[in-house]
């Protein structure tokens, strides 16, 4: 950061903090408002499932590719899941081409924990031949426009793509697995939502937009299903008081159910296994 940027950031930070003091933000929201969420599904024919998710101006694209793989030796009955995230050079001037940077790795791993631990996908249903052949789901998320809060966008992207994922039907002939022309939906078992709260000086706000994110001191992301906390990650060079974390969690649980309702409306044919 050059001296110039440091000064500009300090001025901007003061301004944002002054606004927050009276529960206002640069884009007219209140501290506890989440930007509008738009989801568009099934946009890539070649992928088994895909979605574009927009939170405000932040935009990500996610796709699911399913392929045959061998199960882990300690989990012969379970399919596998891999989540990747790329902050592509498409999305902001500061991102460069090349292997994922630590930020992207962190994003991928936090999203991975959310999807994996919430059990969105029943991995046992991905088993084809026990100990030999399973479905391996590769979920890759690419940032298109980084206007802040990629964490929540990535989580929604992964979920929306999974919700529209269809796997080819298969038949087993003499131990050989053949793919059929037809396909059936994956069938999800849970609905996780990620809520990220940012801290700027002593102020807390959710779903930061770009400038707020850049000058924020710390952030904390919670992954929440309807009845459990399944993932969490603190980032940034600031710190949270212990009571703040409990407060934020309470608030995140409340927000998550609101977001869940909004998202459900936008994903067509959202069905859960057992419904």
């Amino acid at each position: 950061m050059s001296d110039f940027e440091y000064i500009v950031n300090s001025i901007e930070k003061n301004h944002i903090v002054n606004l927050l003091d009276s529960d206002r933000r640069l884009d007219g929201r209140r501290k506890n408002d989440i930007r509008d969420i738009k989801i568009e599904t099934n946009i890539i024919d070649k992928a088994n499932g895909s979605a574009i998710v927009q939170i405000g101006q932040t935009k990500v694209i996610a796709g699911v590719k399913a392929q045959f793989g061998t199960p882990w030796s300690d989990q012969p009955k379970k399919g596998s899941l891999f989540i990747g995230f790329e902050t592509t050079p498409l999305s902001a001037p500061e991102y460069r081409a090349g292997p994922p940077q630590p930020d992207a790795i962190e994003l991928a791993r936090v999203t991975d924990r959310l999807i994996r631990e919430s059990g969105v996908v029943d991995l046992e249903k991905l088993c084809i031949i026990e100990g030999e052949k399973v479905w391996q789901l590769n979920i890759d998320i690419y940032a298109l426009d980084d206007f802040g809060n990629l964490f929540d966008a990535a989580a929604l992207g992964a979920f929306a793509a999974l919700a529209t994922t269809k796997l080819p039907d298969i038949q087993i002939v003499d131990g050989e697995v053949e793919k059929l022309e037809t396909s059936s939906p994956l069938g999800l078992t849970n609905f996780p939502i990620s809520i990220t709260t940012y801290k700027i000086n002593e102020e807390l706000l959710v779903d930061a937009e770009l400038r707020e994110e850049q000058i924020s001191d710390a952030r904390i992301t919670f992954g929440l299903t309807e009845d459990h906390i399944v993932s969490g990650q603190k980032g940034g060079s600031g710190a949270f008081k212990s009571e703040e974390i409990i407060d934020i969690l309470r608030n995140s649980i409340k927000l998550a159910s609101e977001v869940r309702a909004k998202v459900s409306e936008q994903i067509p044919d959202l069905t859960f296994a057992g419904e």
Binding site: E117, D227, V230, S231, G232, Q233, K234, A239, E243, I245
Partner: peptide, 22 residues
């Protein structure tokens, strides 16, 4: 300082379990 500077979580915690663990 009563400050949490690193926080990570994975698994399935209920709110009460979370508070107790924390």
């Amino acid at each position: 300082l009563d400050e949490v500077s690193l926080f990570q979580l994975d698994g399935k915690f209920t709110f009460d379990q979370f508070k107790e663990a924390f």
